[in-house]
């Protein structure tokens, strides 16, 4: 667990994918720590990265920007990048930004294994 203000980020390396699980709001004050964690995960060139957002009740555009950066890193390295279990408020910002069709988004972590 990596303390980051009130955001805690768990990184679990599974055989089939690396799972990043932030817990807490992701806003301007917490996005930089989240960005660092995502960059660290991609530096190890995993085949698949799943970001489990079930523990994130709120995200602003700086959190979304961090995930867009993650997607770009994934595209460059050929990594599969999946967002999992978006809460309603988080889902709605993706819809407002019209990014809900750009990301691979699934409801449960087990579904990310199939992507």
């Amino acid at each position: 667990m990596t303390p980051n203000e009130e955001l805690t980020i768990n990184i679990e390396k599974r055989p089939e994918m690396t799972v990043i699980s932030p817990q807490g709001d992701i806003d301007l004050s917490r996005a930089p720590g989240f960005r660092t964690n995502i960059a660290e995960v991609f530096s190890e060139k995993p085949a698949k990265v799943a970001v489990d957002l079930s523990g994130v009740p709120y995200m602003d555009s700086s959190g979304v920007a961090t995930l867009v950066e993650g997607m770009q890193l994934a595209n460059r390295s050929g990594t599969v990048f999946v967002l999992v279990a978006l809460q309603e408020r988080v889902k709605s910002i993706f819809e407002i930004a019209r990014l809900d069709t750009v990301f691979k988004i699934v409801d449960e972590l087990t579904q990310a294994e199939e992507v």
Binding site: S61, E69, I93, A97, L99
Partner: peptide, 18 residues
């Protein structure tokens, strides 16, 4: 432009949309 997917630049769009 929302068609140009890149980090940043979403804040004003979100404000005006909401």
């Amino acid at each position: 432009d929302l068609e140009d997917v890149k980090p940043g630049g979403l804040g004003v769009h979100i404000m005006k949309e909401i």
